[in-house]
Amino acid sequence: MCALIQILDYGSGNLFSIKDSLNRVSPQLKVKISTDYEEGRMDGLVLPGVGSFSSAQRLLVKNRPAILRDVSTKKMPILGICLGMQLMFEKSEEGKGIGLKLFKGNVVRFESKQNLKVPHMGWNRVLLKKDAMDNSNFCYDLPASDWAYFAHSFFPEATDGNFINATTRYGNQTFPSIIQNDNIVGTQFHPEKSGDFGFKIISNFARAVISQAEKDPAC
């Protein structure tokens, strides 16, 4: 048995680390990096966290219908990291175009004021909601509070609090750092760069992908 997972390539930046991280979870996972989403063949999809909203969004346009079909009808697990999570919302102040609209709300920029450095870059705390550990397969075994690596200037103003599993505070701003609606998950930080804490999240996602593959073994 193997599980197929695709990392959508927007054309710039480091995809090596997330691929390597997935490979470390299980040799069962076959990771493919490509600019074209292969509908119906994948057991999981990662929207990685490098690039700009406009350029990534342009690439998403042609893949959107296929991705949305697999995510809603097959309940395929999808993980958005940083920019990838922002692409799951409606639109962004960073650039033109619309997102995947998997979550309601828009992506806005941190205001640089009061000594607040933007981009928000470095290690900050991720505070898990009380019920997240019990209710979310994706947050399984995570500590109530831990450090994660962030590198971003924009964040989603989520409108539905039910989908927020964890938050992070920067300056006076609290923003969602882990969101989830069933098989759709997003992290504003980079789990592939967040040491042991991040690896737990990648492992939880990978396990969801493997159980997806067991439903309909392709290889």
């Binding site: 710039s12 480091n14 090596f16 680390s17 690596y149 980079h190 760069k193 040491g195 991040g198």
Partner: peptide, 27 residues
């Protein structure tokens, strides 16, 4: 990149976009 799960920076002799792309796409 194969060994690290924390951020890392490479510098020294990077003088063009293609030099940068070369190291960024390799981890």
């Amino acid at each position: 990149a194969k060994e690290l799960d924390i951020p890392f920076t490479i510098g020294g002799g990077i003088s063009s976009v293609s030099d940068a792309r070369n190291v960024l796409t390799n981890g």
